[in-house]
């Protein structure tokens, strides 16, 4: 028991970090589902591309004298823009032509995009693991000691950036005109069109925003967990999907909640039980939620969609 309490603060910090990454991935999953009722299986691979864009910028800039803040900011921004554009392109060419096809068709198309992205990276950059040189950007000496726990600089960065992005997203969805249009399209496309909303453009914007968040998640994940490779999107996609379902797929606050829920569940399982549980826990959570509350813990009716 003593051990448990001694470890708890550190586990909370770790849970927050992992949860922040999952939440960012889950958001894009959930937003796309909310607006198109499409499970975008390529979303995890967009996250992977984001990780590689960040890695590329880092590798190119570490040898320069640019300050770390600038390098990190550029990594995140470039990954967000790159992934945002990628998301828009995927929507335009892989999903839009199938908008009125049977629902299985875009699912298969999504799997195709997923394989395509993995293979592009494997063929161009090989199947090797790459490692983020985080220590050169944020020295391990930076951090705050909190009793038995330590909040390292990089974990603080991940948590702060993720919360900032989620706050901005929440503002966009709840307060801006575009956000209102997204919610309108999610509830009733024809009715939204009847208000003058250009539905295709709103769908594009949704893909851009959701994919940009995945891109940011890719960089943050790389910074804090270091290793990246072409197949990492598969696992990330599963976690994002699980988190989205846990919160109630299609619902923005739900995806954030689901991400942190899963992040904490995994961290605690690893920290207090055994590391072998890490990837099992997501499925346990997914199955439990589907059995007990298929609409997600923040049930879809209560909270607004998109």
């Amino acid at each position: 028991m003593d051990n448990f309490f001694a470890q708890l603060p550190q586990q909370i910090i770790n849970g927050l970090t992992l949860g922040a990454v999952y939440a960012l991935i889950a958001l894009g999953y959930s937003m796309v589902y909310g607006i198109l009722q499409l499970l975008n299986f390529a979303h995890g691979d967009v996250f992977m591309i984001g990780a590689f864009i960040g890695f590329g910028i880092m590798s190119a800039m570490l040898s320069t004298s640019a300050p770390s803040v600038i390098i990190i900011a550029l990594m995140i921004v470039a990954a967000m823009i790159g992934c945002g554009v990628l998301g828009v392109v995927i929507e335009r060419f892989a999903y839009r032509p199938l908008r009125n096809a049977p629902r299985i068709a875009p699912l298969i198309s999504a799997l195709g995009v997923s394989f395509f992205l993995q293979n592009v990276i494997q063929l161009t950059l090989s199947a090797r693991f790459r490692t983020y040189q985080t220590a050169q950007l944020i020295p391990g000496s930076i951090g705050v000691d909190l009793g038995t726990a330590r909040l390292s600089g990089v974990r603080a960065l991940v948590i702060i950036v993720a919360f900032l992005l989620m706050f901005l997203l929440q503002y966009l969805v709840r307060r801006s005109k575009l956000g209102r249009a997204m919610r309108a399209v999610a509830t009733d496309k024809d009715a939204a069109a009847m208000m003058g909303v250009d539905v295709d453009r709103v769908i594009m914007a949704t893909f851009f925003v959701g994919s940009a968040l995945a891109g940011a998640a890719g960089v943050l994940n790389g910074l804090v967990f270091f290793r990246i490779w072409h197949f990492m999107g598969f696992n990330a996609g599963l976690k994002g999907f699980t988190a989205a379902v846990v919160g109630g797929i299609g619902n923005v606050p739900g995806a954030m909640f689901g991400g942190f829920f899963l992040g904490f569940a995994e961290t605690f399982a690893v920290g207090f039980l055994s590391p072998t549980f890490k990837d099992v826990i997501a499925f346990v959570v997914l199955i439990a939620v589907l059995l007990i509350r298929p609409r997600g813990l923040l049930g879809a009716r209560l909270v607004q969609k998109v």
């Binding site: 919610r183 009715a191 939204a192 009847m194 909303v197």
Partner: peptide
């Protein structure tokens, strides 16, 4: 348009529904 079955945005407040009318 005042559509058949009204097509009110169920998850939006009355005020937001009105704002949707002024979308453009």
């Amino acid at each position: 348009v005042v559509p058949e079955n009204r097509r009110i945005f169920a998850d939006m407040s009355v005020d937001e529904n009105l704002q949707m009318g002024a979308y453009l």
